[in-house]
């Protein structure tokens, strides 16, 4: 019988072999997640992208497996270009506006609030962020409906005239709040706002107090410090946040169904093409648009140092 210490030593040398063979250890750890992501994510993604180079025969209602750039060309047809521009414009507007709302919240969280208050505010932001997406969207349909809270508040404040003036503006307005682009914009901004607050807050958190002291020591007034030190240094946070607001708006197809005027978004087009029409190649071609936009965006965001703020 082997004495216990010798046995232990034998095991230790065996596992020492594992410890000393980092490649084997890496393979054991990495194998499963790598295979999963290759099979469940990368392969399907490439499969989808390859579909966009097939065509769909309207006559036989089947997919023709021959390489063609027809779908890509088709994306630039006036009707489809409209959809892309409409979606991208909304994504841009939502990103800009949510950055404007998010900044004071993030700023107050990091620079004014004390420890306990800071924690409280942090929870106040993450809770609505994680709260059910469909419930939030549903709530807005209740708020914006004609007998709903929004009209009630606007009426109580005597602002009906102002609202109607807004709704009369072409391409922003509409017949009612819930069928206007203004309403849709509000819902999008609301739902993605926390995704903008947190990265800005993270960027502000890293801002060192000594920089601000240096600025004021050198004679800058508070506003100058704000304008020339704080604001530029939170830009990476804004960019990081806008990756989310942009990407999430570009791919959404539920909110455009629930609120806003008729006229499809990229997401709705993808859904319609693959579903009722069965034109998977065209649907796949449409997904290229958000993928490309996000890829370009990520490239520039990385150069601007936005990933440190994630």
């Amino acid at each position: 019988m082997m004495p216990a210490t010798a046995k232990n030593r034998a095991i230790a040398s065996k596992s020492g072999a594992l410890f000393n063979r980092p490649r084997l250890k890496l393979l054991l750890l990495l194998g499963l997640p790598a295979v999963w992501f290759l099979v469940i994510y990368i392969y399907p993604l490439l499969h989808l992208l390859s579909q966009s180079f097939y065509t769909f025969d309207d006559f036989t209602m089947t997919v023709v497996r021959e390489f063609s750039l027809d779908n890509i060309r088709n994306l630039f047809s006036p009707a489809n270009a409209d959809i892309i521009i409409r979606t991208a414009a909304m994504a841009l507007a939502v990103s800009v506006f949510s950055a404007i709302i998010a900044f004071p919240v993030a700023y107050y969280m990091t620079r004014h609030a004390s420890g306990k208050m800071q924690a409280f505010l942090y929870i106040s932001v993450i809770l609505p962020m994680w709260t059910s997406y469909i419930v939030k969207a549903y709530s807005w349909t209740l708020i914006l409906s004609q007998e709903g809270v929004a009209y009630w508040i606007i009426d109580a404040l005597g602002l009906t005239g102002v609202l109607n003036a807004f709704l009369d503006i072409p391409s922003i307005g509409g017949n009612t709040l819930s069928t206007s682009n203004l309403g849709r914009f509000l819902v999008f901004t609301y739902i993605w706002l926390p995704f903008m607050i947190l990265p800005i807050q993270a960027a502000l958190q890293r801002l060192s107090e000594s920089l601000l002291d240096a600025s004021s020591d050198l004679g800058a007034r508070p506003f100058q410090t704000f304008r020339h030190v704080i604001l530029p240094l939170c830009i990476p946070g804004v960019i990081a946040g806008s990756i989310f607001t942009f990407s999430l708006t570009l791919g959404d197809y539920i909110i455009p169904q629930l609120v806003g005027p008729p006229g499809l978004f990229i997401g709705n087009m993808v859904y319609v093409q693959q579903g009722s029409i069965g034109n998977m190649p065209m649907a796949a071609a449409f997904t290229l648009v958000p993928i490309l936009i996000i890829a370009v965006y990520l490239y520039f965001a990385k150069r601007a140092g936005a990933f440190d703020a994630l």
Partner: peptide, 26 residues
């Protein structure tokens, strides 16, 4: 590898959804 881990939430949900659907279908 880290990029691939993040992609499913960085890319819009329709991309992940449609990729899976088209693969499952075929």
């Amino acid at each position: 590898f880290t990029l691939i881990l993040i992609l499913p939430i960085a890319l819009p949900g329709i991309v992940t959804g449609l990729s899976l659907l088209s693969t499952f279908k075929s």
